[in-house]
Amino acid sequence: MNLNEILTGTLTGLIILVFAFVWQTTLSGVTRKIVGRFQKRYGPKFYQEFRDIFKLLTKTGVTHGWVYSFGVMMALGGIMGTAMFMPVMRFTAFPGLDNVFIYVYLFAVGMLGMAMSAVGSGNPLAGIGVMRALTQMVGYEVPFLVVVLAMVYGHGTASVSELAAVQQAAGIASWNLVRMPIGTVVGFICLLGMLGKKPFETFIAPAEIASGPMVEYGGKQLGMLMLLHEFSIFIEVSLFVNLFLGGAVTVVGFIIKYVGVFVLASLVSQALGRFKIDQVIRYFYRWPIALAVAQALIVVFLGWGV
């Protein structure tokens, strides 16, 4: 990599970041409106999420020690760094470096920063929330990685943009949604876990542990956490679109797929109640993992869907 490539890559990455922020924040507001309509309400304006984030950034923020303040920065930086690597349509900031495992590792930096910062606030509910978030992460990462590893074995590449390109060869018939239907179901359930949507909302649980890790955040720090939340949703949904729905070539295709996945996840979340944390783990280690292993065996031994 020479200097020129690094500069172009960074610039592309920054453009992807701005796009991710504007797009995902708008979509979150639109989803709030859709959910409102489902409950026979008007719902907020579609740009409500922007107003929330900017309001929080104009408020004062108290600190609970340098671990707390530094952890927020580390979390936001880690997640933004991860988002820069994400292939969007045909743009990849750092070609050849968009390996699946990059996301697993870099995403953990953000998660650990958040865990550090939340525990640094000293509130016991934050500690409980972080413990639940990390426990849930252990739950969904295993089935998700089994499916992804089967996919990597089948297609012979671990690069997300190449995995997306393989699926664009023959229209819908070559999407992993059709080639590996069981794996896609597992992927969607794990996506619900990653997003913290309702059946797997254990670590937020506002009525039970007062919004878990976020319990001591207010003002600027909470605004940064909301930014982080938008970026992490962007990473998770884009990863799902790239891995299972054949990525996207045009803007329209990307928008349709992304909106479909995110709105479906939000509506599923509206219809369900919340699991307890032990139920989450028991659930993930029973059905998704069995289906994931079945899908992996089909790909490896029968060679279907490759």
Partner: peptide, 21 residues
């Protein structure tokens, strides 16, 4: 809830004092 729908005004419930306005 749906009868008067406070969320139209951009209001919503929060869990802790630190987050609230």
């Amino acid at each position: 809830t749906s009868r008067y729908d406070m969320e139209r005004l951009g209001m919503g419930p929060m869990a802790t004092p630190r987050q609230a306005d």
